[in-house]
Protein backbone atom coordinates (compact mmCIF):
# COMPACT_ATOMS: atom_id res chain seq x y z
CA UNK A 1 0.00 0.00 0.00
CA UNK A 2 1.21 3.48 -0.83
CA UNK A 3 0.63 6.52 1.33
CA UNK A 4 0.67 10.27 0.76
CA UNK A 5 1.12 12.99 3.33
CA UNK A 6 -0.68 16.17 2.34
CA UNK A 7 -1.74 19.60 3.53
CA UNK A 8 -5.21 21.09 3.31
CA UNK A 9 -5.11 24.80 3.93
CA UNK A 10 -6.65 28.13 3.05
CA UNK A 11 -9.87 28.02 1.02
CA UNK A 12 -9.53 24.26 0.61
CA UNK A 13 -10.29 23.74 4.29
CA UNK A 14 -13.96 24.17 3.46
CA UNK A 15 -13.98 21.12 1.20
CA UNK A 16 -15.88 18.40 3.06
CA UNK A 17 -14.53 14.90 3.58
CA UNK A 18 -16.85 13.38 0.99
CA UNK A 19 -15.92 16.08 -1.53
CA UNK A 20 -12.23 15.59 -0.75
CA UNK A 21 -12.47 11.94 -1.77
CA UNK A 22 -13.98 12.97 -5.10
CA UNK A 23 -11.39 15.72 -5.53
CA UNK A 24 -8.52 13.33 -4.85
CA UNK A 25 -9.94 10.72 -7.20
CA UNK A 26 -10.08 13.27 -10.02
CA UNK A 27 -6.66 14.65 -9.21
CA UNK A 28 -5.13 11.18 -9.57
CA UNK A 29 -6.76 10.82 -12.98
CA UNK A 30 -5.61 14.27 -14.09
CA UNK A 31 -2.11 13.56 -12.82
CA UNK A 32 -2.11 10.27 -14.74
CA UNK A 33 -1.27 8.39 -11.57
CA UNK A 34 -3.56 5.39 -12.00
CA UNK A 35 -4.80 3.73 -8.84
CA UNK A 36 -6.44 0.37 -8.29
CA UNK A 37 -10.18 0.08 -8.01
CA UNK A 38 -12.13 -2.02 -5.56
CA UNK A 39 -13.55 -5.28 -6.80
CA UNK A 40 -17.26 -5.81 -6.95
CA UNK A 41 -20.43 -4.66 -8.56
CA UNK A 42 -19.67 -0.96 -8.40
CA UNK A 43 -15.89 -0.57 -8.55
CA UNK A 44 -14.47 2.65 -7.20
CA UNK A 45 -10.89 3.79 -6.65
CA UNK A 46 -9.39 2.36 -3.50
CA UNK A 47 -8.57 5.25 -1.16
CA UNK A 48 -8.45 5.29 2.62
CA UNK A 49 -8.00 8.41 4.72
CA UNK A 50 -6.42 8.28 8.17
CA UNK A 51 -8.70 10.63 10.08
CA UNK A 52 -11.56 12.47 8.39
CA UNK A 53 -10.93 16.19 8.68
CA UNK A 54 -13.86 18.34 9.81
CA UNK A 55 -14.98 21.11 7.41
CA UNK A 56 -13.24 24.35 8.28
CA UNK A 57 -10.18 22.76 9.92
CA UNK A 58 -6.78 23.17 8.31
CA UNK A 59 -4.16 20.46 8.40
CA UNK A 60 -0.53 19.87 7.49
CA UNK A 61 -0.60 16.18 8.41
CA UNK A 62 -3.28 14.39 6.39
CA UNK A 63 -2.60 10.83 5.30
CA UNK A 64 -4.24 8.83 2.56
CA UNK A 65 -3.56 5.24 1.42
CA UNK A 66 -4.00 3.90 -2.10
CA UNK A 67 -2.65 1.23 -4.41
CA UNK A 68 -0.85 2.16 -7.61
CA UNK A 69 -2.17 0.36 -10.65
CA UNK A 70 1.06 0.86 -12.57
CA UNK A 71 4.69 0.66 -11.67
CA UNK A 72 5.54 4.27 -11.01
CA UNK A 73 8.33 5.62 -8.80
CA UNK A 74 6.56 6.90 -5.68
CA UNK A 75 8.87 9.86 -5.29
CA UNK A 76 7.52 11.33 -8.54
CA UNK A 77 3.94 11.21 -7.26
CA UNK A 78 3.87 14.41 -5.13
CA UNK A 79 4.93 16.64 -8.02
CA UNK A 80 2.51 14.95 -10.42
CA UNK A 81 -0.40 15.31 -8.01
CA UNK A 82 0.39 18.87 -7.03
CA UNK A 83 -0.03 20.02 -10.60
CA UNK A 84 -3.48 18.43 -10.61
CA UNK A 85 -4.81 19.50 -7.21
CA UNK A 86 -6.90 22.55 -6.42
CA UNK A 87 -5.44 25.48 -4.52
CA UNK A 88 -4.69 24.68 -0.88
CA UNK A 89 -4.18 20.93 -1.17
CA UNK A 90 -0.52 19.99 -1.44
CA UNK A 91 1.11 16.58 -1.28
CA UNK A 92 4.41 16.72 0.59
CA UNK A 93 5.46 13.06 0.63
CA UNK A 94 4.64 9.71 -0.94
CA UNK A 95 5.98 6.43 0.40
CA UNK A 96 5.18 2.80 1.13
CA UNK A 97 3.36 2.53 4.41
CA UNK A 98 4.67 0.47 7.34
CA UNK A 99 2.25 1.42 10.11
CA UNK A 100 -1.51 1.04 10.14
CA UNK A 101 -3.83 3.98 10.72
CA UNK A 102 -5.22 2.30 13.80
CA UNK A 103 -1.89 2.99 15.51
CA UNK A 104 -2.54 6.73 15.46
CA UNK A 105 -3.26 7.62 19.07
CA UNK A 106 -2.54 11.31 19.47
CA UNK A 107 -2.99 14.42 17.41
CA UNK A 108 -1.43 17.85 17.88
CA UNK A 109 -3.72 20.69 17.05
CA UNK A 110 -3.38 24.43 17.14
CA UNK A 111 -6.46 26.43 18.00
CA UNK A 112 -6.81 30.19 17.70
CA UNK A 113 -9.44 31.26 20.21
CA UNK A 114 -11.06 34.61 19.51
CA UNK A 115 -12.64 36.70 22.28
CA UNK A 116 -14.45 39.57 20.61
CA UNK A 117 -15.22 41.86 23.52
CA UNK A 118 -12.60 41.06 26.11
CA UNK A 119 -8.98 40.24 26.66
CA UNK A 120 -8.05 37.05 28.46
CA UNK A 121 -4.99 35.79 30.25
CA UNK A 122 -3.34 32.67 29.00
CA UNK A 123 -2.46 31.49 32.49
CA UNK A 124 -6.05 30.84 33.52
CA UNK A 125 -6.79 28.70 30.50
CA UNK A 126 -3.55 26.78 30.87
CA UNK A 127 -4.38 26.04 34.52
CA UNK A 128 -7.79 24.80 33.52
CA UNK A 129 -6.44 22.42 30.89
CA UNK A 130 -3.50 21.13 32.95
CA UNK A 131 -5.35 20.60 36.23
CA UNK A 132 -6.16 17.25 37.79
CA UNK A 133 -9.53 16.86 36.19
CA UNK A 134 -11.60 18.27 33.34
CA UNK A 135 -15.10 16.95 33.71
CA UNK A 136 -17.60 17.54 30.93
CA UNK A 137 -20.93 16.44 29.58
CA UNK A 138 -19.84 14.57 26.47
CA UNK A 139 -22.43 13.87 23.84
CA UNK A 140 -22.23 10.62 21.96
CA UNK A 141 -24.54 9.47 19.21
CA UNK A 142 -26.91 7.84 21.66
CA UNK A 143 -26.48 9.51 25.00
CA UNK A 144 -24.77 12.14 27.08
CA UNK A 145 -22.19 11.04 29.64
CA UNK A 146 -20.31 12.92 32.31
CA UNK A 147 -16.64 12.12 31.85
CA UNK A 148 -13.26 13.36 32.90
CA UNK A 149 -11.50 14.21 29.62
CA UNK A 150 -8.26 15.36 31.26
CA UNK A 151 -6.53 12.02 30.48
CA UNK A 152 -7.29 12.68 26.81
CA UNK A 153 -5.04 15.75 26.83
CA UNK A 154 -1.38 14.76 26.71
CA UNK A 155 0.26 18.14 26.37
CA UNK A 156 -0.89 21.71 26.35
CA UNK A 157 0.48 25.18 25.84
CA UNK A 158 -1.30 28.53 25.64
CA UNK A 159 0.05 31.80 24.28
CA UNK A 160 -1.53 35.20 23.96
CA UNK A 161 -1.29 35.87 20.25
CA UNK A 162 -3.00 39.23 20.14
CA UNK A 163 -5.50 41.27 22.07
CA UNK A 164 -8.44 38.95 22.56
CA UNK A 165 -6.74 36.05 20.80
CA UNK A 166 -5.24 33.03 22.55
CA UNK A 167 -3.36 30.36 20.64
CA UNK A 168 -3.67 26.92 22.13
CA UNK A 169 -1.42 24.03 21.21
CA UNK A 170 -2.72 20.79 22.52
CA UNK A 171 -2.15 17.07 22.06
CA UNK A 172 -5.49 15.25 21.98
CA UNK A 173 -6.37 11.58 22.05
CA UNK A 174 -7.78 10.03 18.90
CA UNK A 175 -9.47 6.67 18.54
CA UNK A 176 -11.58 5.44 21.43
CA UNK A 177 -11.96 7.36 23.61
CA UNK A 178 -11.13 10.57 21.77
CA UNK A 179 -11.40 14.27 22.41
CA UNK A 180 -12.10 16.32 19.32
CA UNK A 181 -11.10 19.98 19.12
CA UNK A 182 -14.78 20.94 19.14
CA UNK A 183 -15.31 18.86 22.28
CA UNK A 184 -12.31 20.52 23.89
CA UNK A 185 -13.87 23.94 23.29
CA UNK A 186 -17.09 22.63 24.75
CA UNK A 187 -15.23 21.36 27.82
CA UNK A 188 -13.65 24.80 28.28
CA UNK A 189 -17.05 26.46 28.03
CA UNK A 190 -18.63 24.08 30.51
CA UNK A 191 -15.92 24.47 33.10
CA UNK A 192 -15.02 28.12 32.65
CA UNK A 193 -17.60 30.09 30.64
CA UNK A 194 -15.24 33.07 30.75
CA UNK A 195 -12.85 31.20 28.46
CA UNK A 196 -15.50 30.11 25.97
CA UNK A 197 -14.32 31.75 22.74
CA UNK A 198 -16.59 33.56 20.28
CA UNK A 199 -14.85 31.73 17.47
CA UNK A 200 -12.22 29.00 17.28
CA UNK A 201 -10.02 28.21 14.29
CA UNK A 202 -8.34 24.81 14.21
CA UNK A 203 -5.30 23.42 12.48
CA UNK A 204 -3.94 19.89 12.67
CA UNK A 205 -0.19 19.84 13.12
CA UNK A 206 1.04 16.31 13.71
CA UNK A 207 0.03 12.71 14.32
CA UNK A 208 1.60 10.39 16.91
CA UNK A 209 1.49 6.76 17.97
CA UNK A 210 1.00 5.61 21.58
CA UNK A 211 4.63 6.34 22.44
CA UNK A 212 4.42 9.87 21.06
CA UNK A 213 6.51 9.01 18.02
CA UNK A 214 5.52 10.93 14.93
CA UNK A 215 3.23 8.71 12.88
CA UNK A 216 3.93 8.29 9.22
Amino acid sequence: MSRILFKKEGRAKFISHLDLMRTMQRAFIRAKVPIKHTEGFNPHPYMVFALPLPVGTESVCELMDFKLAEDLPLDTVPALLNRALPEGIEVTEAYEETYKFKDIKWLDIEADLFYDSKDTDEGGLLRLLTGDKLVMEKKTKRSTATVDVRPLIAACDVKRADEGVLTLRVRLAVGDPALSPAQLISAIGQNAPFFAPDFARFRRLELYDKDFHVFR
Binding site: R11, F14, V55, L85
Partner: peptide, 15 residues
Protein backbone atom coordinates in the same frame (compact mmCIF):
# COMPACT_ATOMS: atom_id res chain seq x y z
CA UNK B 1 -18.31 29.97 6.29
CA UNK B 2 -17.98 27.88 9.43
CA UNK B 3 -21.68 28.36 10.11
CA UNK B 4 -23.38 27.99 6.71
CA UNK B 5 -24.35 24.85 4.82
CA UNK B 6 -21.94 23.63 2.13
CA UNK B 7 -19.37 26.43 2.49
CA UNK B 8 -17.21 25.16 -0.39
CA UNK B 9 -19.63 26.75 -2.83
CA UNK B 10 -18.69 30.20 -1.54
CA UNK B 11 -14.89 29.93 -1.55
CA UNK B 12 -13.68 29.50 -5.13
CA UNK B 13 -10.22 28.00 -5.52
CA UNK B 14 -11.33 25.07 -7.67
CA UNK B 15 -9.07 23.32 -10.13
Amino acid sequence: LNRVQKPARYTGGEY
